[in-house]
Design a protein around this nucleic acid. Structure first.
Lengths: 136, 136
DNA sequence: ATTGACTCTATAGTTATTATAGAGTTTATA
DNA sequence: TATAAACTCTATAATAACTATAGAGTCAAT
């Protein structure tokens, strides 16, 4: 059994984050030592790595909670998992589109001013003052 | 002179957001009517639209504050504006890269499970449990 | 016995809003 | 003129997923 600092090192999650996950019920309340320190086993390490992997894919904590619940009932159909992934992929792609559009606008704006002009002549500020381009 | 609700309609910013911008010093404290209602003129409308345009470009409130300050000293060099834009563009492009990578991983993961399998056989959950792919 | 490293809980801060409660003001209607 | 509806005011809490802090307790080594 390891303490929370060790778990933090092994998994790369900060100590506060681990405590946060416990409070948010993503991991079970840990056993405690006599001195009230949290104690973890290998299963805890793996569950935390699972969560970390999900987070690296930008899944939200509620989404992860849902996956963990499904994981616990291995007989269930996994349609729900698929639906969640599909929705998540859609969101990510929508965000990429938004940012790509945004990037074009920013570059265009940036081209409107070369260095060493005064603010008065600055195309960026002038253009920002004009009516916004329609965009989310 | 118009009241905050009218300003909200004209600019498309919510009433609370306008009050928030005042608290955050993005717009000056509004004049008040006898009954203590905020009163705005045309200049306020334009400044709010400026802010809204900046927000649509994902500039942060502190960044916008900086732009507004520069706007007020029209003799200053606008190098600072350019630096800010360059940094911002970099950030947006980095985020696009991240998301693109993420999207590839999600699609790959999604392909590992077709519908109507049980959770036990679900490739998504299996793969999520494996050691994470290195990624921010 | 004491130092240092670790852990505990509880609370506040981060960002840019949105939402709420409870009170006061103004406008329109009966 | 009374009253209701619509609006505004301030202050506070919630959102997401942490991060940081304070103040106290625990444990291992000296």
């Amino acid at each position: 059994m390891i303490k929370i600092g060790e778990l933090s090192k092994v998994t790369g999650c900060s100590v506060q984050t681990i405590r946060h996950y416990e409070k948010e019920q993503l991991i079970a309340s840990a056993e405690r030592s006599e001195g009230n320190f949290r104690l973890y086993d290998e299963a805890a390490v793996e569950q935390l790595l699972f969560i970390k992997h999900c987070r690296s894919l930008d899944l939200s904590l509620p989404e992860i909670r849902q996956l963990l619940a499904l994981n616990r009932s291995p007989g269930a159909q996994c349609d729900d998992v698929n639906r969640m992934m599909d929705r998540h992929i859609e969101q990510v792609e929508a965000r990429i589109q938004e940012l790509t559009k945004l990037n074009e606008q920013l570059r265009k704006l940036r081209r409107s001013c070369s260095n060493r002009r005064t603010v008065k002549q600055c195309g960026i500020l002038r253009n920002l003052s004009a009516t916004p381009v329609s965009s989310g």
